[in-house]
Design a binder for these strands. Sequence first.
DNA 1: CGAGGGTATGTTAGCGTCAACACGCCGGTG
DNA 2: CACCGGCGTGTTGACGCTAACATACCCTCG
Lengths: 353, 353
Amino acid sequence: MGSGAGSGDGRRASMADVAVRAGVSGQTVSRVVNRSPRVDPDTRRRVEAAMADLGYRPHRAARALRTGRSQTIGLIVSTLATVGNSRMLQAVSDAAASRGLALVVVTVSGRADGGVAGAFERLGDQGVDGAIVLNEATLLARGVVPPVGLRLVVVDTPVPHPRASSGGPGATAADGSASGTRGTAVQTDHATGARLAIEHLFALGHTRIRHLAGPSTSFAAAERERGWREALAGAGLEVVEPLRGEWTSSAGFRAAGMLDADATAVFCANDQMALGMLRGLAQRGLDVPGRVSVVGFDDVSDARDFRPPLTTVRQDFDALGEAAVAALADDASGVPAIIPVRLIERASTGPVP
Amino acid sequence: MGSGAGSGDGRRASMADVAVRAGVSGQTVSRVVNRSPRVDPDTRRRVEAAMADLGYRPHRAARALRTGRSQTIGLIVSTLATVGNSRMLQAVSDAAASRGLALVVVTVSGRADGGVAGAFERLGDQGVDGAIVLNEATLLARGVVPPVGLRLVVVDTPVPHPRASSGGPGATAADGSASGTRGTAVQTDHATGARLAIEHLFALGHTRIRHLAGPSTSFAAAERERGWREALAGAGLEVVEPLRGEWTSSAGFRAAGMLDADATAVFCANDQMALGMLRGLAQRGLDVPGRVSVVGFDDVSDARDFRPPLTTVRQDFDALGEAAVAALADDASGVPAIIPVRLIERASTGPVP
DNA sequence: CGAGGGTATGTTAGCGTCAACACGCCGGTG
DNA sequence: CACCGGCGTGTTGACGCTAACATACCCTCG
């Protein structure tokens, strides 16, 4: 019972069909659907029964046309090739689904048209109520302005073009993060994560700690690098200019070949690069953790099965996705803008040799 | 110029606005937008200029309401935790974008409501024109019938509930695969991939080749297992009942502990399980490829940086995604239903000891 | 030179929904 | 008892777009 598939006379049941069957007007059906309190309980029951009988489902396009709101949000992401982005997508998808929001995904990888600008256009066409932008520092920085009226949440991205909030009640947006600009930003506490990693290495006696940073276009990469720098500087240690890679294991492998011989530890900006680093070090005959310790970032599910299992900073992707969607859906309020991390100690780190 | 943001009097330009500015009727604007040939070139230019001036973008919801078609497709996927699924999502996203289709992603991981049934409902609400279902054998098998009128393409999934095609011209669907049922199916040539892997091991002298299969709910897993079985049987070799895991590296690690001592080679149903297998074998002191050879499936980007770099079967995710979207968008016709694979030989396989 | 047919454009109506307003009914109050 | 206000419900119209049907015009052909 209640499985939904209506008696199949072809067309989907509309509100008018329900109205006729329940012996009420369309407007009353609408009120029931939208949980208006101004409906007699008895009428409500009749309408609900009629809806169930007919397998009625509201027509989103019609509602969107009428109300101007589509109950759909967009996610703009450069690539899903990194495991972190994939995990975020899943987290956002779950968070959106739990609120009855549909999620439109737009990837801007290698697209010919202007990247995020084009993505905004496509989402604008789509009539999304808001969009989440994932770790797209450059693209927003280039002065791309999102379409008017499009609520925007940036994840692991410096806050975009400052704009006065349009509509909305009292502009409650208690600007969470860094700079003085407005806008909703949600991010992992990258810098603290980096610091946790470095302090863990300190505790093991390491002092010559290098960094394999992510691409300079990435905010997350910059923040992790900053955490590493500050931790080292705070301890009065030398800061050797970091290596840099594009998040991939290949980049990690290459970086291993460029690691100076003094280093006793490397903090890699993500787990995939750490994987390549592990292989590269092995190939150079540098034992991990006997000779060099390696720390990653993300704690992707595979990290525990690297060789050796990877010590890494765990990001709470689900919390991050939830926070991002909440910031879009609810109006601002008490969502934490900065998601904490924790260090997962495994076998890739050990005492300094 | 042409950056889009119209002169900001608040509301978005509608077709009527464009019509007034170009001095034509709304219908003519519609014809221009929809590339009808019945428009004077001169008028067309005027309309296009007006559209550019006003930053006009068609309103998808309105169009969807009027035409009943939303230019949106859905993707139903159980989880994005496996790298393969993520890659497929990206491929589908790109293929959809290149056709101007929006993509709505629905994950059914651990959802309380009936999984795919719920997903269909949500997509039905959404008014998608079609849906792609990714590797969801069980869920479709449970007799879930997609909403009427919803075009469906299943990827790496046995063909669902047989149904007569509604609408459409001459039912050109030249049923690609196995059984006699109707429906559009697109899949990787898993069985051949498995056979390639096994024959590669044959060439290295292996005869005691085990299999770490994927979950029994997965069609891809079943096909890969079948290829392995048939290759072994074809060579008159013993088929030891396969181990089984849930696609994760942890499962691979566990399986390594259960591998019988006779085995000289293991064919893992995906790369992530192969990763865990590599660590597990190392922990047991079994050298790869000196003592045991390992082959994976997928060729995820990290596979070249496993230790040792993984011999694996490369799937062409982009072709698969393209084929799936093409099957939805164009009406059937010449999309190949089966995507070929190739073997990538790396260092995890070697001569039998 | 009038009929016929093509071409470019305009007019009408309605897709399913909901905001705004209108209506009738009831109980309470002055 | 007339009036008021709240409540439950119905009526109307419009959101932006396009299918189907007009209409106006020009060219060709018998």
